[in-house]
Design a protein around this nucleic acid. Structure first.
Lengths: 297, 297
DNA sequence: TTACTTATATATAAATTTTATTGAATAATA
DNA sequence: TATTATTCAATAAAATTTATATATAAGTAA
């Protein structure tokens, strides 16, 4: 005793014309099919929707009310159907990215993408590398971008760029080249323990330096950049995070000899993922734009 | 290639649980039925809605978007269905009434009724007796209330009350009884030609008076009541239209001997009208309340 | 008018086609 | 191995058609 969309469709047509025969012609069905469908609908509802007045069917007081409620819903369902059938770009992509990427790269990518494909909703989720991997595995995230390396047999990874960590300071006189051990005694600001940026930096210098003078630990790159405005402080940050400040002359890159501290960015997605048009377009777009951003900096 | 409500129902359940087997148990269907229904839906849309990840079905980027759009619509349709199935008072009645009734009786009836049955929408249409009859015959109006008599083989009429026309004035001294010919020379205000009220009055006095001193013709009873505030003017109006003014002492009923000018009110509806619960309740309510109103005045 | 005919419309029943569902076999996965 | 999804032929259920009955409007003749 359940209403069907077909019944609603027929009902709406009958309301329009008032004649079963007319509707049957319009819909390429027999007149009895229309008659029975209306009857079915009426018995589903539990009472008549039409007054049979002479040779016409006119909405009665119940039918009128039903009509006004059901018509807009039916139209919406039809709209959704044709929308999805005809616009391959309709959808909702969930993107996850780890800290540096989500702060300094993804916003540009997502906003350009949404401008190009306004039908696509992009959902950007922040998290550390491990969170993103979990999300991808559970299907909560369609595609992830992470700084750390990934080794998981359920995950496919693609290298999408190289990130360089550089030493920065606001202290102007130190623009000539030097070695890392000569500045180890400066006031260093690090990211908090567990941060990928921190780990890579410490790993990179561990053979060259006995002790780093850690002055402060902060959990946001933006905070570190603020504190760096007090000269005599130093930090090792992702190049893309300080790009603007260096261009504006607010920070300077310290030219440290034999200091080569790089890490790779990976795009990850689940093995066996059905690659929809949407997915392919987004990942293509994101990879291309990410390499442009990284090369420009 | 049309989406059905059943497919949507199954789709929503699969989204909920992520397992076809679970849904098949919940819905008392075989799992292949569920599988095929999902497949059908996907092919209607033109691309997959789920990622088959391990033994689960997880919405993909398209499915997620489809889900968020279709779910609220499905729920609404379900709501409408149960609403109509379970609340016999749901509907929309179209009532038509001719001038005097629509102004002085129907507002009270309609507002009381809507208070008692808030699910019912009442649509009140104004028109002269002939308009109302046409509306009823065409099915545009479910039930009509008219002042004039009706003779039409397609229309069923029920007498619902008697309306009395009385002579009113603001001239205080004329409160003793008199004969109509003694006041025929006063300044009379009539309704416009074609008005039922006017016709009945003139017909009522045609044998008793040679010439009535018609001072003014106005098309609204309310206008006449305003002009009547200038003393020395007279009018013959429906008792219910001047009830308040008489009670407030702003107008007086002239006690005219042998002046008996009545007309009947009729409720009309189409022959063969399917009498829904809604219709019966409304007409019962309206008839009862109308007689109460007329008797009180 | 009134009765009768014609044309046209809806309603219903049985027959038929189409669609939905099942059951069994197969494939994939933990 | 146990569990689950998919596929396909068989079948149950539903939608639709064909044929027929019934109702109404309009036209026509008594």
């Amino acid at each position: 005793m359940d209403i069907t969309l077909r019944q609603i469709e027929i009902f709406l047509n009958v309301v329009e014309t008032g004649h079963l025969t007319q509707v049957s012609k319009d819909m390429n069905l027999s007149q009895s099919a229309i008659s029975m469908s209306i009857k079915e609908l009426e018995s589903s509802i539990g009472r008549p929707l039409f007054d049979r007045i002479n040779k016409r069917l006119t909405l009665n007081e119940v039918g009128r009310s039903f009509h006004s409620e059901i018509k807009p819903l039916f139209k919406k369902i039809l709209d959704i159907q044709t929308e999805f059938q005809n616009s391959p770009n309709k959808g909702n992509i969930r993107v996850g990215a780890s800290t540096t990427i989500v702060d300094y790269i993804m916003p540009q990518i997502v906003s350009s993408y949404m401008e190009k494909y306004p039908e696509v909703k992009v959902n950007l989720k922040n998290g550390n590398t491990q969170d993103i991997i979990e999300g991808v595995k559970e299907g909560i995230i369609d595609v992830g971008f992470v700084e750390g390396n990934v080794n998981d047999h359920e995950i496919i990874k693609e290298k999408v760029g190289v990130d360089e960590l550089i030493i920065v300071t606001a202290e102007e006189e130190l623009r000539h080249s030097c070695f890392i051990d000569s500045i180890a005694g400066k006031k260093w600001i690090l990211r908090e323990k567990g941060s990928g940026t921190r780990d890579i930096f410490l790993n990179c210098i561990k053979d060259k330096i006995e002790k780093l003078n850690v002055f402060m630990e902060l959990s946001h790159t933006e905070s570190i950049k603020s504190v760096l405005q007090n000269k005599t402080t130093y930090a090792c940050l992702s190049k893309i995070a300080v790009d603007r400040e260096i261009k504006d002359g607010k920070l300077f890159q310290v030219n440290v000899k034999k200091f080569d501290c790089k890490r790779e960015f990976f795009m990850i997605y689940r093995k066996n993922k059905f690659k929809s048009d949407l997915f392919d377009k987004f990942t293509f777009f994101a990879k291309k734009m990410m390499s442009e951003i990284l090369e420009a900096k």
